[in-house]
Amino acid sequence: MPILEAINIRKSFGKLEVLKGISLSIEPREVIAVIGPSGSGKSTFLRCLNKLETINDGTIKLDGEIIAENAVYPPEAQLRPVLKKMGMVFQQFNLFPHKSVLQNIIEAPVCVNNVPKNEAVETAKKLLSDVGLSEKINNYPCELSGGQQQRVAIARALAMNPEIMLFDEPTSALDPELTGEVLKVIKALAAKNMTMIIVTHEMSFAKEVADRVVFMDEGNIIANDTPDKIFSKDNETPRIQAFLRKFEG
């Protein structure tokens, strides 16, 4: 049974239809990479899944629980416990600048999940050591490099114990020499069987980490297949070939 199901999602901004009836389902422990040209609706799709954008049509379910059914959302109080099972990592990190690394990580567990503070701190320490930032626990985001900030953002999302993680171009805002450290952390998550949807422009990373690659173009999913098939030299879809060619040169 899929952990996350999106059925026929439509989303418009004013007159512009950005998602034109997209369906996708994800099995537990699956890693899906979403690729496609700029403006094809990848971010919007991800943001619709956790209600950062509200959809105009379609159904979204997590663990069989309704996030939206025919574009109707359950009441906020009912929805919040479902939504918080989804972690999200943004391109711009979005750490809380006025909070230390530790405070960033324990804020939501303590305030949202009512985890006792000392327990939350223990978890935070463990997560920080997983992302290789134990020594930065008391620093502030402005004192960290982009790559370090993004690793803290990942730890912060993981602290809520999510069932699925959404990544929106987690390395696009980073200098090339810093992408590696973040991709390594994501790979480690994949190895621990975390379910993930990753929007990325890192083709080799997608090829390596993903079980399935989804190709979006102009608000549609035009391919949804194994990396081998999508990245194979004799992929017949001209749009995909044209897109991939740009990354070879």
Partner: peptide
Amino acid sequence: EAGYVLGMK
């Protein structure tokens, strides 16, 4: 958005 996706009201 970072707050909302962490489940905050």
